[in-house]
Write a protein that binds this DNA or RNA. Structure first.
Length: 271
DNA sequence: AAAAGCCCCTGGATGC
DNA sequence: TGCATCCAGGGGCTTT
């Protein structure tokens, strides 16, 4: 579900409030993607120092170790003083002295994993291969172009893979490619520097705009305070098959790329 | 080594 | 109403 904007909106929704809070208890529901990796009781008494984000992962630095949280396809986090009794899809509660952080995840593709530090084997496996952060100034065009030049995959799949740039999921890949006027099927290595530059800018603009708008709410995404996002109201391609392109009026087309739906305008995205 | 497919899981929408 | 099928915001793992 959540792409970079949704994860970042989630992070901002509770980071300041949970910072410094002591862990009171931990409740686990049904199994998630991986086991927590530590006895829940061991975490009690530790403090949550800060909440960072890397790609679509949230990193909760504890006074000892850190929790990696991923929302998968259907996950969302809530943070509140008091939450209702855990439902069948509430699979992780981190109860702190300042409120409870709860992961709700019907499909359970999400994960909460404890590691001692970012150099641990699991942390390296999950975070080690990630590409540049698109909203930071480490997202440099020369490296972006070099990454594209090294791949014979389609540009859409390169964006989704997260090895060159992180955080771009299916919605924002479609939107950024439309904004840049690039056909999603183009082989990444064949993009000219000029077009790659347009894409580099489009990725930043689309993601930053989505964060401002509070993310996209397709099914049940909401921020940590429970508020829905509004970006989907302005999605120009994603989910709009058959509807007129807002730029030229040509019906939006949908196709499959790597088991994912791609939406594009055959006129505005000609090459 | 890189790329393509395969799953993990539940629920909602659609079609018969 | 009931049941089958397809699809969904991700990504690690296995197979080519």
């Amino acid at each position: 579900m959540p792409e970079l904007p949704e994860v970042e909106v989630t992070r901002r929704g509770f980071a300041d409030r949970i910072a410094g809070a002591r862990i009171v208890s931990v409740r686990l529901g049904k199994p998630l993607r991986w086991p927590l990796g530590v006895e829940p009781a061991v975490l009690v008494g530790r403090r949550v120092l800060q909440v960072r984000r890397r790609g679509k992962y949230l990193l909760l630095d504890l006074s000892t170790g850190l929790l990696l949280i991923h929302l998968g396809m259907s996950g969302s986090l809530r943070f509140a003083d008091v939450l209702p009794p855990a439902g069948v899809h509430d699979h992780f509660d981190l109860v702190t002295a300042r409120g409870t952080l709860r992961l709700h995840d019907p499909r359970r593709f999400g994960a909460v994993v404890w590691v001692h530090d970012e150099a641990s084997p699991l942390a390296r496996k999950l975070l080690g291969g990630l590409g540049a952060e698109p909203l930071s100034d480490t997202f440099m065009f020369p490296a972006f172009l070099a990454g594209l030049k090294a791949s014979r995959q389609s540009i859409k799949q390169v964006l989704l893979a997260g090895k060159v740039v992180v955080g771009v999921g299916n919605i924002y890949a479609c939107e950024a490619l439309f904004a840049a006027g690039i056909r999603p099927t183009v082989v990444a290595a064949r993009l000219s520097a000029r077009r790659a530059l347009r894409l580099h800018a489009a990725i930043r603009e689309v993601l930053a705009r989505a964060v401002e708008r509070g993310g996209s709410t397709l099914r049940d995404f909401s921020g940590a305070d429970g508020a829905a996002g509004h970006f989907q109201l302005e999605a120009r391609m994603y989910g709009r098959a058959g509807q007129p392109c807002p730029s030229c009026g040509t019906p939006v087309r949908v196709m499959r790329q790597g088991q994912r739906s791609t939406y594009f305008c055959p006129h505005c995205q000609r090459a």
